[in-house]
Simulated scan of single mutants.
Amino acid sequence: MSCNATAKDRDFEAQRQKIEQFLQTVDHKLLVMSGKGGVGKSTVATNLAVFLSNQGYCVGLLDVDVHGPSIAGLLGLTGLGLNVIENRIQPYQYAENLKVMSIQGFLGQPDAPLIWRGPMKIGIIRQFLGDVDWGPLDFLIIDSPPGTGDEPLTVAQTIPGCQAVIVTTPQEIALADVRKSIQFCRQVKMPVLGLIENMSGFICPDCGSTHAIFKSGGGEKTAADWNIPFLGKLPIDPGVVTAGDAGRAIDSLTSHTKEEMQQIVERMIRQLQN
């Protein structure tokens, strides 16, 4: 670095080096994204991380949705503060193989809003990568807010080798936004690992029949049209809502949804091995 570099420049370079050192200890980096809100993206990201950790992988789950962080709530961590030891942020140790990081841990009040512009969001994402004591990871799962704004763009520009897992629901209005997400990935040269269709049919708990409330198959067709791997479908399941509100992952369920999520994880692992 030049002798004329400012203190700000030196700090940025030091942080860049810390981020690079951390990323060298991560085997797979996955950005879970969606074109629009309300498709269950955070629930999918959370359960991907939990199911991977249950298989013995060391997993970090990072919530970069600073305006609407929901990972902490889905895992029962809301209200628990985060610690800093020797200038290193200590992530939540949710399970033996799963560490979790969310801005929620720094909020004095759980419902306090963060009214930040782009530079602040970019800065905190970089801090989550460079200043958190993650340790070596097999997987870093990153949950981003909907759309193609600051957060997913920062991840794409900061994490070389990151791959996208795109979540959609079957109806056309969601698929239209998914196509924007696919185009975003192609423009920033982020490979798409696969697409997951969430809320794909409702399985009646009484008779066992499936009702396509939001249609079904649109995600699979979109994946085929764009030559993207299709990872699987998850149904509408009241048990998932109940588990999420109680701060529990769906591995606690005994349901068709749990079986489908396990198959999605297995397909994802096979896709990464290809």
Rank of each mutant, 00 (worst) to 15 (best):
S2V: 11
N4M: 15
A7K: 15
I19P: 07
F22A: 00
Q24H: 10
V26D: 07
D27P: 00
H28N: 05
K29S: 11
K29W: 06
M33P: 14
S34L: 15
G35V: 11
K36E: 01
G38L: 00
V39I: 10
N47P: 06
A49Y: 14
S53L: 09
S53A: 15
N54E: 03
Q55H: 07
V59H: 06
L61F: 10
L62K: 12
D63T: 03
D65R: 08
D65L: 07
V66C: 09
V66F: 07
P69W: 00
S70Y: 06
A72L: 05
G73C: 01
L75E: 13
L77A: 04
G79Q: 05
G79I: 06
L80W: 05
L82D: 10
N83A: 12
N83V: 05
V84L: 07
I85T: 14
Y94D: 13
K99Q: 11
P110H: 03
D111P: 09
I115K: 15
W116K: 15
W116G: 14
W116P: 01
G118F: 09
M120K: 15
Q127R: 11
D131N: 07
V132D: 00
W134S: 02
P136K: 11
L140Q: 05
I141L: 00
I141V: 09
I142A: 03
I142Y: 00
S144T: 15
P145D: 01
P146R: 05
T148H: 04
G149E: 07
G149V: 08
E151F: 02
P152W: 06
T158G: 13
I159M: 05
P160I: 10
V167E: 07
Q171F: 12
I173S: 13
A176C: 07
A176V: 15
D177P: 05
D177Y: 07
R179S: 14
I182R: 03
Q187E: 10
K189C: 09
P191H: 01
G194V: 01
G194A: 04
N198E: 05
M199R: 10
H211M: 09
H211G: 10
F214I: 02
G217F: 05
K221F: 12
A223P: 14
D225H: 04
I228S: 11
L231E: 00
G232I: 02
K233F: 02
I236V: 06
D237E: 13
V241N: 13
V241D: 13
A243C: 05
I250W: 01
D251W: 03
D251G: 07
S252G: 14
S252F: 14
L253I: 06
T254E: 04
S255A: 08
T257C: 09
M268P: 03
L272I: 04
Q273W: 03
Q273L: 15
N274S: 12
